[in-house]
Write a protein that binds this DNA or RNA. Structure first.
Length: 425
DNA sequence: TCTGGGGTCCTAGGACCC
DNA sequence: TCTGGGGTCCTAGGACCC
C-alpha cells in the first residue's frame, strides 16, 4: 500500500506523467449496452418522470434540452418531455467500473479509482513500454473501447489537477495533453469554476472580488488569499501559477485504501412522523450499512444519523462507541437512541439516514466473554449475508430469531449506548 | 420543478492531556 | 491566581464531487 503524505515533492517534476481517465456519460452508456434502442435518444437515468428524486445522468441528446445531473426529475421531464426515464442499476455500473479498472491496470500498476467512472494513472516511467504519453493514451483509449464498448476521455499532465481539468476539456471521447511548462497558460483563460473543488459558493465569493478566470487568481497576493480564503485558496492560487501547492491534487496516485465511511439514507415518498415507520427504516438502513461493513471486514466506531425535516432543515447527530462494531443490532440501537434523543417529535420527516465511520480492520481487544459472543454473532451474520446473496433478501427471516437474542445482549451492555445527557435543540 | 444517494475533505469549537 | 500553547479526539455542519 502506498503511503500518502498529503504532500508530494515530485509534484512539480516535469517528468511526471499523470493520466486522468473519465468515462463518457457513464451511466447512460452502460444502460445503452443493455438496451441498444436507447442509443442516440434523450435518456435520463435516475428514476421516473413523476418521482421525488434527481437526475443521476443524462445522455448528450437530453443535455441539449438543458437537462443535467442533480436536476429534479420533474424539472427534467418539463424541459425534455420526450426523454426516456430509466432507473439506475448500480450493480451494472460497478460491473463495468471493474472492467474499466482491469483495462487501466494493463497500462500502469498505479491506478487510483477516484469514483465509479474515473481514475488517475501514474504513467511516469512507462515510456519504454507504452511509448510517449499521447501514443499511450490513444492505445488506452482504443483498448478501453474494445474491451468494454465504452468511450472515455483522457487528460494528461504533470499533476492530478492538470490531468483532471484536461480530461474535462477533452470530452467527449477525446485526449488532451498539456506538455510540461504549459500548465499555467493552459489554466489561465479557464473559468475558476473549471477547477475541481471550486463550486457554486466559492465561485460566487471569487466573483465578488472580480475574479472570474484562473489567471485572475494567479495575480493575487498570497497574504490576501490566505486571509480571505484560508489555506485552500492559497493552494489554489499556487496551482494556478503551475506550482506544487500540496494537498489532494498533488498527492501521489495511490492504490485503493478502502472506504472511510459507509452510509445509507432514504427519502420517503411522503413525509412522515410515524415513529414506528421511522424506527423500522433506521433498523433497515442499519442492516444495509453493517452488511457492507462486514463485506469490507471492517469495524466501525462512530455511528451517525441524519434527519431531514419537511422544510429541508437537516441535522446530523453522532456517537462514538467504546468498541468498534460490525453488528446490525449495535448500530441500530445506537442510531435509534440518537433518533429518539434528537427528533423533534411531531415534526414530519422527509429523509432519514444511518452512517458509520472510524473504521478499524480489527476490533479492539474485548474481554473474552463479549469477544467470543460477538464473534459468533458476526459469523452468523456473515452466513446470513451469503444466504441473502444466494436466495435473495427475503431469506432475512433467518435473522429474525437471531435478532431477538442480540437485543437482550445489547440491553446487558447499556454503556455502549449514547448518553442521555445530549442537549436538545 | 422542490431539492437522491453515496461519498470525501475541511473547518471550528470544546474536551482533555501534556 | 492567572496564564500559555500544542496535539488529538469528538461532534456538527457545510462545500463539493459523481
Amino acid at each position: 500500500m502506498e503511503e500518502i503524505t498529503g504532500r508530494n515533492s515530485a509534484a512539480a517534476d516535469p517528468r511526471r506523467v499523470i493520466f486522468h481517465v473519465d468515462m463518457d456519460a457513464f451511466f447512460v452508456s452502460v444502460e445503452e449496452l443493455f438496451d441498444p434502442s436507447l442509443k442516440g435518444k434523450a435518456v435520463v437515468v435516475g428514476g421516473h418522470r413523476d418521482e421525488r428524486g434527481v437526475v443521476s445522468a443524462a445522455s448528450y441528446a437530453a443535455r441539449k434540452f438543458g437537462v443535467h445531473s442533480a436536476m429534479p426529475l420533474r424539472t427534467a421531464a418539463k424541459l425534455c418531455p420526450d426523454a426516456i426515464f430509466v432507473n439506475g442499476h448500480p450493480e451494472r455500473y460497478r460491473e463495468y467500473s471493474g472492467k474499466a479498472f482491469e483495462v487501466l491496470k494493463k497500462f500502469s500498476p498505479k491506478v487510483e479509482m477516484a469514483s465509479i467512472d474515473e481514475a488517475y494513472l501514474d504513467m511516469t516511467g512507462t515510456e519504454r513500454l507504452h511509448g510517449p504519453p499521447l501514443k499511450a493514451a490513444h492505445a488506452l483509449h482504443q483498448f478501453m473501447k474494445s474491451e468494454t464498448k465504452l468511450n472515455c476521455s483522457i487528460g494528461i499532465g504533470t499533476s492530478r489537477l492538470i490531468a483532471k481539468v484536461c480530461s474535462d476539456q477533452a470530452k467527449p471521447n477525446g485526449v488532451l495533453y498539456i506538455v510540461p511548462g504549459q500548465e499555467a497558460s493552459f489554466l489561465a483563460p479557464l473559468s475558476v469554476r473549471k477547477i475541481p473543488g471550486v463550486g457554486k459558493v466559492f465561485e460566487q465569493k471569487l466573483n465578488e472580488i472580480g475574479i472570474k478566470k484562473v489567471g485572475d487568481l494567479a495575480k493575487l497576493d498570497d497574504a490576501f488569499l490566505r486571509e480571505r480564503f484560508g489555506e485552500w485558496g492559497l493552494a489554489l492560487a499556487g496551482k494556478s501559477r503551475g506550482l506544487d501547492a500540496g494537498g489532494y491534487f498533488d498527492r501521489d496516485v495511490a492504490v485503493d485504501e478502502g472506504p472511510k465511511s459507509i452510509s445509507h439514507e432514504h427519502t420517503f415518498n411522503t413525509d412522515t412522523r410515524d415513529q414506528e415507520k421511522l424506527e423500522a427504516m433506521i433498523a433497515r438502513l442499519s442492516e444495509m450499512v453493517c452488511r457492507r461493513v462486514r463485506e469490507h471486514e471492517l469495524h466501525a466506531r462512530t455511528v451517525q444519523i441524519k434527519l431531514r425535516y419537511s422544510d429541508f432543515t437537516t441535522i446530523t447527530r453522532a456517537h462514538s462507541l467504546e468498541q468498534p462494531t460490525q453488528l446490525d443490532t449495535v448500530v441500530a440501537e445506537t442510531a435509534r437512541t440518537l433518533f429518539r434523543d434528537n427528533w423533534q417529535r411531531g415534526r414530519t420527516i422527509r429523509l432519514i439516514g444511518v452512517h458509520v465511520a472510524g473504521f478499524d480492520d480489527v476490533p479492539q481487544q474485548l474481554d473474552l466473554l463479549t469477544q467470543t459472543h460477538d464473534d459468533k454473532v458476526s459469523k452468523a451474520l456473515s452466513v446470513v449475508d451469503r444466504m441473502r446473496d444466494k436466495f435473495g433478501e427475503n431469506a432475512v427471516s433467518l435473522a429474525t430469531g437471531l435478532k431477538s437474542r442480540f437485543r437482550e445482549k445489547t440491553h446487558e451492555n447499556p454503556a455502549s449506548l449514547p448518553g442521555k445527557s445530549k442537549k436538545k435543540e
